[in-house]
Design a protein around this nucleic acid. Structure first.
Lengths: 186, 186
DNA sequence: GGTATTGTACCGATCGTTCGGTACAATACC
DNA sequence: GGTATTGTACCGAACGATCGGTACAATACC
């Protein structure tokens, strides 16, 4: 088999980008084809299940990406404050300071949102659990940690929406900063 | 001239509902037609500019609705805490406890989001200004009031996203409760 | 030669949109 | 008062474009 111009991971990255930018219905096959450099037939070769298959694989890819680059490092022995700070840094990069949308949000806003419900649920749960674990590690009670973790995700997601709505990315920066200072506070 | 079966306001309300539920691209003309009881061609009678026109008029309608039912009452002489509480009650009703999405979010997530940028910007600004005014009235400094107002909107929007993503509306209830207790705190 | 991948040509369905027209109440004219 | 005209509300039937998706022969690589 000829070496693919793009690795499967690269293809998934570009699909991820397109879905994040345009949403599920907004990302047409023509656009996904242009973004990956693959013809429609090639897309259907790699994703026999079509557009839905693409979104699902992108979701799974992102899941693994977050696990290895975000959650897994949090289980190291470093101090909780450092780990939280690292997560916030990573989120700032991943969302490009508020300029990029959240894939989970875009997919659960889709008309066929039911298809993606389960993985999106799992993704939000994993995210909250990661934050909760750091909070507990920092000495907060389980109950407080849960509230903090939920609020953490709520504020990141909300900041992304407000950034997109107002066109002012500074909201995201302020939210990150505020979270850095408050999440682990006793 | 024959009396319309539905008033213009009723039509706008139903379009608003459909756009909130399905998003801009997700709400097809067929769906908008079914929701209003008007044939597609009749929709073009009321909205010569087509779908985009519909969304713009819905946006303007909502703008006025929020102004008269949310922001205007806040300029009364009642105590700030009461007014904030009333706004949170109204938001809880409007978003149906987290089950309904935010029109602004759905429209600025649209592919043609540039078209709605200005009105959405104005809507977010008006919302924040209203909250900020209550905060100032309650004795907070202008700077703190601004931060609180921004965080208020961020958390409402974020809670709606997390509700949709997890299918768990209790997140919205907790966010409302938390805001009720913390926004005006010294 | 055999296999993996791509390009071309399609498909039916649905998209947003337009057009020609009907029903009928209000108005203008005599 | 009766008739012609206007304007509003609305609808059915199409429009071209694009949607997601398929079939298959040609190509590229081992």
């Amino acid at each position: 088999m000829p070496a693919p111009v793009l690795s499967k991971n690269d293809v998934l990255e570009r699909l991820l980008d397109t879905f994040r930018d345009r949403g599920y219905e907004g990302a047409s096959l023509a656009e996904l084809s242009a973004a990956t450099g693959l013809m429609k037939s090639s897309l259907y070769h790699y994703f026999p299940g079509g557009k839905e298959d693409m979104a699902e694989q992108v979701l799974a890819h992102l899941d693994q990406l977050l696990e290895t680059s975000l959650y897994e490092p949090l289980r190291s022995a470093r101090p909780p404050a450092k780990k939280l700070s690292a997560m916030l840094d990573a989120l700032d990069v991943f969302y490009e300071g508020g300029r990029k949308a959240c894939l989970f949000e875009r997919l659960c806003a889709s008309v066929d949102s039911a298809r993606f419900r389960r993985p999106v649920q799992r993704a939000f749960a994993a995210w909250m659990n990661a934050v909760e674990a750091i909070c507990v590690e920092a000495g907060l009670s389980k109950a407080v940690a849960r509230v903090r973790a939920e609020d953490f995700v709520v504020r990141i997601e909300g900041a992304l929406i407000v950034c997109a709505g107002t066109g002012d990315c500074s909201v995201f920066a302020r939210t990150i900063k505020s979270l850095r200072a408050s999440v682990l506070a006793q």
